[in-house]
Design a protein around this nucleic acid. Structure first.
Length: 548
DNA sequence: AAAAAAG
């Protein structure tokens, strides 16, 4: 899909990307920049440290990817093959995807991008390192493994990116990430990107950042979440969940669907049950071999199966076009997980449907998710006693006359817009009828409540940035790190200046607010102010910031 | 508490 005609967005050339990169992006069908890219490119290209936050599916990868590409020397420029940039990611499949995106953007300059991750043979990776690469994208375990074996030199890395940064800096990963950081030159660019940035993580991250700019793009309604995704919650019971699931999967409006479970075993169980009922489902979780994981994801991306059942290994970052439904078969444990899971749909302007199953035991954590994010989804309790699987707003068959719901086999393989050659003379059709456009399901219904996207407008100019850094309204230092500049995607209110001075962000990070977006229309202003106040008055740091 | 990430 090309976005060339959207004149409201700047081109990558206007944002300072190299002409070769602009050409490479054009070849990928990408001409215009999303909000996060508008803000991040000018800062990243000149080598600045940054915390980049934007909703799921709004282009964070190229937000750091273009700066990384444009800052490395190509082989023609005299690159000697030592890695000049490192992107660290939390899962192997995400590493593969990011590496492909960057390779595409760096193609015209011959930039070599190497994915490094476990579960696959060492030799190809070692061999590629020996030949030389400009950019590494990897998961921590294998990166450290190869570094320890001296197969990998990180002392020439000039740019470091933590993708899904809050995940990379939480307890499961922090030790490994710190080890990796200790192997990098101190004089380097560091960029942190995620849709969610809990306060404690932001605070922790200041140890690794120098004069960071915080770039915060997106809408201010349910921040982090794509506004085009319609969200539902059902009150469920262990005994009726599979029935409800099968009925949702029979929806005529459904395209590719991701189902999230809490455990690997549950992912297998659900997959087996759906398979038994005739649905084309595949499972992805960490107990599977790497080959099986990648095959499952590939089958899903190509539409060979239209249901992917996954643990949270697939919750973050994965970009699969045509995903219309996300179903939280097991309720997510925390607001961040919810945001990332449902962010697999409603990407790049497409519409989506997110359904969460809430058992009685899940009510406390669901209420926390709903309250923290300000979702205001109707209490699932109310939907229970009427009929366990009828919810009028969602298009699912309500006939409960006794037959087990089973798959309509014609779903997979029919209604195709194009075919793809699988090789060997076979071809496969893809169901692409639900892809993103105005015919998608949620677009036909009036939005539950009004949502507005801001932060998509003006360029962040060099002068404006310089101005913001020279004249901060307030500057505090803590732990030797410069307080960051905040570039807000959402338009600041008229009274924000005084509010910022009176009540800077808890971590003392709000030093300057750069007005990078157009003024809101006045009708919306009181509402937005109220929201902002509610957010800043939150009690739990993580809860509060999850919503930002 | 589970999942992920080295083998």
């Amino acid at each position: 899909m090309t976005n060339a005609s959207d004149n409201s967005k700047p081109t990558f050339a206007q944002l300072g990307a190299r002409p070769e990169t602009v050409a490479a992006l054009a070849a990928m069908g990408i001409e215009r920049a999303f909000a996060i890219q508008q803000y991040a490119l000018p800062i990243g290209i000149r080598g600045g440290d940054m915390i980049g936050q934007a909703p799921t599916g709004t282009g964070k990868t190229l937000g750091f990817g273009v700066p990384v590409i444009d800052r490395v020397l190509s082989p023609q420029d005299g690159a000697d093959g030592a890695p000049q940039a490192l992107i660290v990611v939390p899962t192997r499949e995400l590493g593969l995807q990011v590496a492909k995106d960057l390779a595409g953007a760096g193609k015209t300059r011959g930039i070599r991008v190497l994915p490094i991750y476990g579960g696959v043979a060492y030799e190809p990776q070692v061999e590629a390192l020996r030949k030389g690469v400009e950019i590494l994208v990897g998961t921590p375990g294998r990166l450290l493994d190869l570094a320890k074996q001296k197969q990998l030199k990180l002392d020439r890395v000039r740019s470091l990116v933590l993708d899904e940064a809050d995940r990379m800096l939480d307890l499961g990963f922090l030790d490994d990430v710190e080890k990796i950081l200790s192997m990098l030159p101190e004089d380097r660019q560091t960029m942190l990107f995620s849709a969610t940035m809990p306060d404690p993580i932001v605070h922790l991250s200041r140890r690794f950042l120098r004069n960071p700019v915080t770039v915060h793009a997106g809408h201010d309604d349910v921040p982090g979440v794509s506004p085009q995704t319609k969200q539902f919650a059902y009150r469920t019971h262990q005994l009726n969940r599979l029935e409800l699931l099968a009925r949702i999967l029979q929806s005529k409006e459904r395209g590719l669907t991701m189902i999230f479970t809490r455990t690997k075993r549950n992912a297998d169980r659900v997959t087996e049950d759906l398979d038994f009922r005739g649905f084309a489902a595949a499972a992805v979780h960490g107990d599977l071999g790497q080959g099986a994981r990648e095959r499952a994801l590939r089958a899903f991306r190509t539409g060979k199966v239209d249901v992917l059942v996954a643990t949270d290994v697939a919750a973050r970052g994965l970009d699969v076009s045509g995903v219309t439904h996300v179903i939280n078969y097991d309720c997510p444990e925390d607001p961040e997980t919810y945001v990332h899971r449902i962010g697999r749909t409603g990407r790049a302007g497409a519409t989506g449907v997110a359904v969460t199953f809430v058992d009685w035991e899940d009510m406390p954590r669901w209420r926390l998710v709903d309250k923290t994010l300000g979702l205001e989804i109707p209490d699932p309790q109310e939907t229970y006693h009427t009929s366990p699987w009828v919810y009028t707003d969602l298009d699912i068959p309500t006939d409960t006359s006794g037959t087990l719901p089973t798959a309509d086999r014609s779903r997979v393989g029919l209604g195709a817009e194009h075919e793809e050659d699988l090789g060997g003379g076979r071809s496969r059709r893809r169901t692409t009828t639900k892809r993103g456009g105005s015919d998608a399901p949620a677009a036909e219904r009036p939005p539950r409540r009004r949502r507005r996207i801001t932060g998509e407008a003006e360029l962040v100019t060099e002068e404006a940035l310089a101005d913001a850094e020279v004249k901060p309204r307030r500057r505090r230092r803590r732990g030797g790190a410069e307080a960051p500049v905040i570039v807000e995607g959402a338009a600041p209110q008229a009274d924000d200046a005084t509010e910022a001075e009176r009540k800077p962000r808890r971590r003392g990070a709000a030093t300057a607010v750069l007005e990078a977006a157009p003024a809101e229309d006045s009708a919306d202003a009181p509402k937005a102010r109220r929201r902002r106040r509610r957010r800043s008055g939150g009690t739990s740091g993580s809860a509060d910031s999850a919503a930002e």
